[in-house]
Design a protein around this nucleic acid. Structure first.
Length: 599
DNA sequence: AACGAGCGCGCG
DNA sequence: AAAGCGCGCGCTCGTT
């Protein structure tokens, strides 16, 4: 089934036979990172010829041979892993093609292991017991060698499975996803520097607020009444006992278990209801304190010391996450361990200006550089649906204010409270459209009646008829083919009963991702070229948050870095939408920390 | 002790 | 028929 290769000439022969064709490749390594281990085995399979190469038997090991792989299209699962080893061996241009991304180009995104997709797509169970065996042993067992080869075979079979089901456009989307890997490796390896003392101080402050809220709560509710202050279930029982029926009957309940909902906004509403009737009173004091306590708990557990601890684990005080390419159904990124895409924005927290993001800083002598696409989803909706009016409104000003003006019948004044409210309402309508909302859902978010919400939707549908109709076109396409074809050529599997909200949103969210994907790939190439030319030598890509990109650069390079980023983001957008207007496309700036990027 | 469901909430 | 999209994580609580 395969040859055990222990000789460099034999390896050369094998690789020559592959040429620039496809071949499955799988590494067994002695560690998870190139800096503290080596590639022991590489397994190869192209459908006919199989090989397992033992690099411990070859002088110079993998590093001496990495350059031999420069021509092929190497099919791997989770290409970031293999590419890291090629980069460490001085071969960053090696074509590692992720079969998981090919699958995502056809079905849409998701997170899964090789074992899972082999079970789903090939209906075969994988035995991974050898995966964590000792790959540094002087003599590998037959079982280890067989295991290594089987992974390459499974990877190849998976590739065959999806390559057979793909067309030219799918292959474009595959390239798009693969193209992000080098940039993502840079982001994951670099991490973001945390001002640990500052952040611990912030967490300490939250803790003191939290304690004062506990005190307040415990003045009216002793431990005998609610034992665990963090338990929504116990609070539900408490309020069910203590509150009058007319309140309980209107109190929203949770979806599955039917307990009283304990969201912040519910507690606020209860509080202001009682305040309206009785002024200052114990119930209002209690529910407000509980709401504030829950808020502080969230901040403390999700964004407090845990974040500082994670940064402190590394001696450079940088926090590192994983950016999972194509993790969302629409192939958007997700971020894990920690999720750096959910760090709070700067806001008023219990009446105090709070900036978690300011704890993420540039190192001495450097600056953070960040740009985001402004209103990208409305913009791509306009472009996808060829809605001239929507495109005009997005490009030539404040689309939400425009919508508000049309609804009001006259221009609104954004400086007045009424004008602001009208704009906020209009914004909710536009987001509702993007999310495929009907009048019912919209009336909830806008806190208005269903009929009024329907009026807003009707205004919107009349002004932006193409964009509005696009939702139905996508629904029809999904109902007919079970797939939606996206702007980057990929498709998303919508199942047997596609629904309007998803059909309306997926192509829009995907298009925004596609634009950012091109921007990220381009930006990595730009910076590599700059570094080669001895420019932007300290510039590093740090992060992406869906529609935003963050670099750090030497203070003297920051201005130019910003320009390059703007160029790349604009070009990425034009890759997906050739000839589209680029006015007001990106906004952002330079700062010493993430909370202060206003320029 | 480990695991998953349910809830709530941070981000886009 | 149902109808705002997409994520990850911390916590509680019941089950295994």
């Amino acid at each position: 089934m395969y040859n055990l290769i222990t000789d460099i000439d034999e390896l050369q022969q094998y690789v020559d036979a592959i040429g620039d064709g496809f071949c499955a490749l799988d590494f067994e390594t002695t560690s998870l990172r190139p800096q503290d281990g080596r590639v022991r085995l590489v397994s190869l399979f192209d459908g006919t010829r199989g090989a397992v190469v033992d690099f411990d038997a070859i002088r110079g090991g993998f590093k001496a041979c990495a350059g031999m792989f420069i021509r092929g299209e190497w099919i791997v699962f989770n290409s970031g892993f293999e590419l890291r080893w090629f980069i460490a061996a001085g071969c960053p241009k090696t074509r590692c093609r992720d079969v998981g991304f090919l699958r995502r180009a056809i079905l849409g995104g998701g997170r899964y292991s090789l074992k899972q997709v082999v079970a789903w797509d090939l209906d075969r169970e994988m035995d991974k017991t050898e995966q964590t065996s000792n790959w540094a042993a002087p003599e590998l067992t037959q079982s280890q060698l067989d295991y290594a080869f089987k992974d390459a075979v499974d990877t190849w079979n998976l590739f065959q499975h999806w390559y057979d089901r793909s067309d030219e456009l799918h292959l474009q989307a595959w390239e798009l996803l693969d193209g992000m890997v080098p940039a993502v490796i840079e982001m994951e390896d670099t991490g973001m520097l945390v001002d640990i003392p500052r952040h611990r101080q912030l967490a300490k402050h939250w803790a003191s607020i939290s304690e004062s809220k506990v005190k307040l709560i415990r003045e009216t509710v002793p431990v005998t009444a609610v034992q665990n202050i963090n338990s929504d279930t116990q609070w539900s029982d408490f309020f069910a006992r203590e509150m009058p029926d007319n309140i309980l009957s209107k109190w929203p309940r949770t979806e599955k278990t039917g307990t009283l909902s304990m969201t912040g906004s519910t507690l606020s509403k209860i509080g202001s209801h009682f305040f309206g009737h009785f002024g200052e009173n114990p119930i209002t004091t209690l529910v407000d304190a509980l709401r504030d306590y829950k808020k502080m708990s969230k901040y403390l557990s999700s964004f407090g010391d845990t974040l500082a601890d994670k940064a402190q684990m590394h001696d450079d005080n940088r926090v590192r996450c994983r950016f999972n390419i194509g993790a969302a159904k629409t192939c958007r990124f997700s971020s894990t361990g920690p999720n750096l895409q959910q760090i709070p924005r700067d806001l008023d927290l219990l009446g105090e200006r709070t900036s978690v993001r300011s704890s993420f800083i540039a190192p001495p002598g450097k600056k953070l550089v960040s740009l985001d696409y402004s209103g990208i989803e409305l913009r791509v909706l306009a472009l996808l649906s060829k809605d001239e009016q929507l495109l005009h409104d997005v490009v030539h000003g404040d689309v939400h204010a425009e919508v508000a003006s049309v609804i009001a019948g006259h221009p609104i004044d954004k400086s007045t409270p009424e004008g602001k409210a009208a704009r906020t309402a209009a914004k909710a309508v536009s987001f509702g459209i993007i999310y495929g909302s009907g009048a019912g859902g919209l009336s909830v978010t806008m806190r208005t009646s269903s009929t009024k919400a329907q009026k807003y939707i009707d205004f919107w549908a009349e002004r932006f008829s193409n964009a509005f109709e696009y939702r139905n076109i996508m629904l029809e396409q999904a109902a007919k083919t079970r797939y939606i074809r996206c702007v980057d050529g990929g498709t998303i599997y919508m199942g047997k009963n596609p629904d309007l909200p998803k059909c309306a949103n997926y192509p829009v969210q995907r298009a925004a991702l596609s634009v950012m994907a091109r921007a990220i790939s381009r930006h990595k190439q730009t910076l590599d070229a700059q570094r080669q030319a001895r420019q932007q030598q300290q510039t590093l890509i740090l992060s992406t948050i869906h529609d935003a990109l963050i670099d750090e650069a030497a203070a003297s390079d920051a201005q130019e870095c910003l320009r390059l980023m703007q160029e790349d983001m604009t070009a990425g957008y034009l890759d997906m939408f050739p000839g589209a207007p680029t006015e007001r496309l990106v906004e952002g700036g330079i700062g010493i920390n993430w909370g202060n990027l206003g320029d």
